[in-house]
């Protein structure tokens, strides 16, 4: 769908009007006023259908045993353009690499989704969710547990059947 340009010709001299045009405008606004069809969405009751590509609050995927899938590879803090991910890697009891600290500052985040794109183990995702209002600013730094608790669906950044858009 391309950009549509509508060229409006300036009316010829003497052929313009103010009052008639104003009355036409009044009629138009009156028609809209009595028209019962309204475009407003009554938000809390009516929920928006988010696109599957909506990039919102992050989700950390977990293994079946509840461990985070993250291996603390450091790619998401590296790629993050807003520098909102803090990661401290370490070794768990089984000698596996895992994130000791994994924090995302949702205030700083620009929701570009590059963390999800870069993640080699499909652990961190942006999600189809946007309602993250809080009463204090420090609640916007989501730690690992909070990211794992998020239960909204994660974003589909690409069509799984056509991952390369071919």
């Amino acid at each position: 769908m391309g950009v549509q340009v509508k060229v409006i010709q300036r009316p010829e001299p003497g052929r313009t009007s103010y009052l008639r045009a104003a009355l036409k405008g009044m009629a138009l606004t009156f028609r809209h006023m009595v028209n019962p069809t309204k475009v407003t969405q009554q938000y809390p009751e009516e929920q928006t259908d988010l696109s599957p590509r909506w990039r919102g609050t992050h989700v950390m995927e977990t293994h079946a045993d509840g461990r985070p899938k993250c291996v603390a590879c450091g790619l998401c803090p590296t790629v993050c353009p807003a520098n909102c991910i803090r990661l401290v890697g370490g070794e768990d009891d089984n000698g596996n690499r895992y994130p000791i600290v994994y924090e995302i500052d949702e205030f700083r985040c620009i929701f570009c989704g590059m963390c999800q794109e870069v993640c080699p183990v499909e652990a961190i995702h942006v999600g189809q969710h946007f309602e993250n209002a809080e009463y204090s600013r420090d609640r916007f730094v989501y730690d690992l547990d909070r990211l794992m608790e998020q239960d909204h669906p994660s974003t589909l950044l690409w069509d799984p059947s056509d991952p390369r858009s071919e």
Partner: peptide, 17 residues
């Protein structure tokens, strides 16, 4: 109204005619 309507009082900024 006829006088007022015909672009004589209220018109755009550029009124070349």
């Amino acid at each position: 109204l006829f006088f007022l309507d015909r672009d004589r009082v209220i018109a755009g900024a550029a009124v070349p005619h």
